[in-house]
Design a protein around this nucleic acid. Structure first.
Lengths: 214, 214, 214, 214
DNA sequence: TATGAATGAGAATTCATTCAT
DNA sequence: GATGAATGAATTCTCATTCAT
């Protein structure tokens, strides 16, 4: 997570970075300002020059993440892949999307963890998440859906929101399994595993008998 | 979450129930033993007769949930619907499954929240979750897959694990949206929304053009 | 420390014995009634049937020790050796005394530890100790002194109290060294070490030059 | 006990001084950090800035006493009197020694009490006491013994360790009696009492008859 | 009598926050 | 601005004592 661009004072940036680390490792209440100060290489008092309270520091992180970074960093990849791609085959588009998301999640995992935890407990965080990330994602998926339907690559009768949810859900579970439970399974070929996911997203799981009922 | 069956002392049960509530509302570090005691209607010291430390109380909750309730409560519904159902049509089976899961999640949402939060931060919790819930779920999905493949209702070339992941991912996102973001959207008919999800799970999102490439 | 003789209820005796153990190991404040109860094999509440408070239990121990056992057990050996001995040689008398005291101290070390610790902090304990142990010891030493002076075996010009103090002081340091610091020194022959102590008690440390000055 | 010299922060010194007082009065477990803080005139939390735990505070006291003060303060007097004294008469040397020790013990009695109590219960304290105090005392006594033997003022056939033990034992009992039990006896002239002790240390208690047997 | 669950006052310890330097 | 020592309210945990059974 690169905070260098923003117009932040050197110390403020270091504090934010350290706070992201520590909050992510220990959770908000589990983290101490003392440890954050140490990791940031500043005095404990300095934290409170930039952030009135510890809660404020958390808010600062989430604001930085959602408002400033939300669109450009988090959504840029999705936009490029889904909308600007020259790629004609949907299979390849989805593959690119998944790989891109996995890379992103790995690079900002500490922040994701903070957002998930906080979003589970606070509605205002959920709201901010919705406005800054979800709404934009939905918009992108809608356009993508539209374009693809025109090209006949996506069924016209699926709702774009339902489609987006499904794609995200598939990716999410795939990522969770690989990050947290990979070692529990015989080491499967990532490529083939990915192909399965895409195959299911595209064609579903139904067999011939089910298709006839349709 | 019904803890009455287990052979717990009256007070122990009340403490566990109160702890689930408070941990779920405030997170582990944010919760205080003082508040738990008050909600349980016992003296603070009483908590420590049953649970040596606050951490132990959390462990107690997770153990209760994962070990004792994991299989019977959490998996029973899945097993019944997927394996014992007389239902011939897969669409109906999935519908029953989703409705059942939504009901369960609503009834144990506090616990789910605790488990998710803790699992994000502690590997041992993830391990326990894997052994007590995931592994069993995977097993059930495998049997279901086998049976359905025989009947031609599920494609023989999808991996059972990938299939399970996909189903769970679709349901998860559906549930998350309805629980946390429902109000953001024009009030959609739940029935129709559900049908969309199932439709996608079964037949995927690909349009005619994509299918030809296959 | 044998408490069986006293007219104590079975449980009361077991509680006292356990309390001596635990107080001796952990000190008064460091000991818990819970542990005492466990070691005594009784319920925690039972302790408070016999002793109104924890302090009372300590008092009980000290009373048992000082009042009831003080004279008979602790002083009996001294009396026998010093007064009733047929032994003519003082060297042998002292040797018997020291060996007897070492044996006693080893057998009641837990209690000695409690008494020393408590006596350091509470005057009432010191008073009780004085009346029950010291006063009697002084009396015995006085009689011993008198008898020995008559026989010419002790200098007539030493004060009996000073003599007693000196003997006890010599023995005490000897015992302390052997119990707590023995391993720090090359393993010396106990017999010879003892002879040195007795030699010094009897003839002092002064050399010829010093004796002339006298 | 003067802690001003050591390079301690003002507050740290006050805490240590207060802790010595309170531990000495109530024992380790009986003392509370609350009271120590009050007496030191600092907030309770401040104690834990300097000492991680209450146990650590005790350790701090013992370290201060044994390591830093052990040799210089405790042993300096002994060294001067025993080794550097111009005094030719042993009687006067011993008298000076005893008076010096009594003064020391009175001035550091709180600390002595803590050390004795803790040494009775913990081997590591005994070890530290041995290394920092006892070992040095023994060394000094050995040199003293050597010098005095050469001058004919101490018998060549007494072991220096036994000699030291005896002197210390005599002084200890004398000091204990005067501090704790003085009022129990008719008010004796301290000077004469002291002379008795010295007389016994030097010439022992044996009468003519016993000396012949020798 | 004996029990041991329950109590709650009190203890040690933590930590966000302040403020003099 | 920056520091970090000091604070003290809040928190976890302990344990002597009570009391219904």
């Amino acid at each position: 997570m690169d905070l260098t661009k923003l117009g932040l004072a050197e110390k403020e940036r270091k504090i934010l970075e350290a706070a992201i680390d520590v909050f992510s490792e220990k959770g908000f209440s589990g983290a101490t300002t003392n440890e954050i100060a140490k990791r940031a290489g500043v005095a404990e008092g300095t934290i409170f020059r930039y952030f009135k309270t510890k809660k404020d520091l958390l808010r600062g992180i989430l604001i930085q993440m959602l408002n400033l970074l939300g669109e450009p960093v988090i959504m840029e990849g999705v936009r490029k892949i889904l909308l600007q791609s020259e790629e004609k085959e949907m299979r390849r588009i989805l593959k690119a999307l998944i790989l891109d998301r996995m890379e992103l999640i790995n690079s900002v995992f500490p922040m994701v963890r903070i957002v998930i935890t906080e979003a589970l407990y606070h509605e205002d965080i959920r709201d901010a998440f919705f406005q800054n990330v979800l709404a934009k994602g939905i918009e992108i998926f809608s356009i993508f859906h539209q374009q693809m339907v025109v090209r006949g690559m996506i069924r016209p009768d699926v709702d774009p929101l339902a489609m987006g949810r499904s794609i995200v859900g598939n990716i999410a579970l795939f990522v969770i399994f690989r990050r947290f439970f990979a070692e529990k399974f015989s080491p499967t070929d990532m490529e083939r595993d990915l192909d399965q996911v895409i195959d299911i997203i595209m064609f579903g799981i139904a067999g011939e008998a089910s298709r006839e009922q349709k």
